[in-house]
Amino acid sequence: MTLDQTKPGQTFLIRSIDDPAARLAAIRFGIAEGSRASCQTVLPGGPVVVRKGKQEMALGRSLAHRITVELVEG
């Protein structure tokens, strides 16, 4: 599944980021392959708000669509 398909409250691991430009953009947000984070909210037609540690960030839908995630418990 991709990051833009997650629902609030779900925790996930970043499995892959499909292209170099998207990977670089994600790294700027502190998100890399192998990172664990959780979905805080998904704004209708807007960004996906993600929490990693104590940091929250809003990722645009086009970037979130390029990030493959795997859901984890807790």
Results as ranks from 00 to 15, higher is better:
residue 1 M to V: 03
residue 1 M to G: 11
residue 1 M to D: 08
residue 2 T to A: 10
residue 2 T to H: 03
residue 3 L to R: 04
residue 4 D to M: 02
residue 4 D to I: 00
residue 6 T to E: 03
residue 6 T to H: 02
residue 6 T to Q: 03
residue 6 T to N: 04
residue 7 K to W: 02
residue 7 K to C: 01
residue 7 K to F: 01
residue 7 K to Y: 03
residue 8 P to H: 04
residue 8 P to A: 08
residue 9 G to D: 00
residue 9 G to A: 05
residue 10 Q to N: 12
residue 10 Q to M: 08
residue 11 T to F: 00
residue 11 T to Y: 00
residue 11 T to K: 10
residue 11 T to Q: 09
residue 13 L to S: 11
residue 13 L to F: 03
residue 14 I to S: 10
residue 14 I to V: 15
residue 14 I to N: 11
residue 14 I to C: 07
residue 15 R to I: 04
residue 16 S to A: 09
residue 16 S to V: 07
residue 17 I to C: 10
residue 18 D to Q: 01
residue 19 D to N: 15
residue 20 P to C: 01
residue 21 A to T: 13
residue 22 A to T: 06
residue 22 A to I: 06
residue 25 A to Q: 11
residue 27 I to N: 09
residue 27 I to Q: 10
residue 28 R to A: 15
residue 28 R to K: 15
residue 29 F to N: 09
residue 29 F to G: 05
residue 29 F to E: 13
residue 29 F to Y: 15
residue 29 F to S: 14
residue 30 G to V: 06
residue 30 G to R: 08
residue 31 I to W: 08
residue 31 I to N: 03
residue 34 G to Y: 08
residue 34 G to T: 06
residue 35 S to E: 15
residue 35 S to P: 03
residue 35 S to A: 14
residue 35 S to M: 07
residue 35 S to F: 05
residue 36 R to H: 04
residue 37 A to H: 05
residue 37 A to V: 04
residue 37 A to Q: 12
residue 37 A to R: 13
residue 39 C to F: 00
residue 40 Q to E: 05
residue 40 Q to W: 07
residue 40 Q to R: 07
residue 41 T to R: 14
residue 42 V to N: 14
residue 42 V to R: 15
residue 43 L to D: 09
residue 43 L to Y: 12
residue 43 L to I: 15
residue 44 P to L: 12
residue 44 P to R: 14
residue 45 G to T: 11
residue 45 G to W: 09
residue 46 G to M: 13
residue 47 P to F: 08
residue 47 P to S: 14
residue 47 P to G: 11
residue 47 P to R: 07
residue 48 V to G: 04
residue 50 V to Q: 00
residue 50 V to Y: 00
residue 50 V to N: 03
residue 51 R to K: 11
residue 51 R to Y: 01
residue 51 R to L: 06
residue 52 K to M: 14
residue 53 G to Y: 03
residue 54 K to A: 15
residue 55 Q to D: 09
residue 55 Q to A: 14
residue 55 Q to Y: 04
residue 56 E to P: 01
residue 56 E to G: 11
residue 56 E to Q: 09
residue 57 M to V: 15
residue 58 A to I: 09
residue 59 L to Y: 03
residue 59 L to N: 00
residue 59 L to S: 05
residue 60 G to D: 10
residue 60 G to E: 15
residue 60 G to N: 14
residue 62 S to G: 09
residue 63 L to W: 08
residue 63 L to G: 02
residue 63 L to C: 01
residue 64 A to H: 00
residue 64 A to E: 01
residue 65 H to M: 05
residue 65 H to Q: 09
residue 65 H to F: 07
residue 66 R to A: 10
residue 66 R to L: 01
residue 66 R to P: 02
residue 67 I to E: 06
residue 67 I to R: 02
residue 67 I to M: 10
residue 68 T to E: 09
residue 68 T to Y: 08
residue 70 E to A: 15
residue 71 L to C: 02
residue 71 L to K: 06
residue 72 V to N: 09
residue 72 V to G: 10
residue 73 E to V: 02
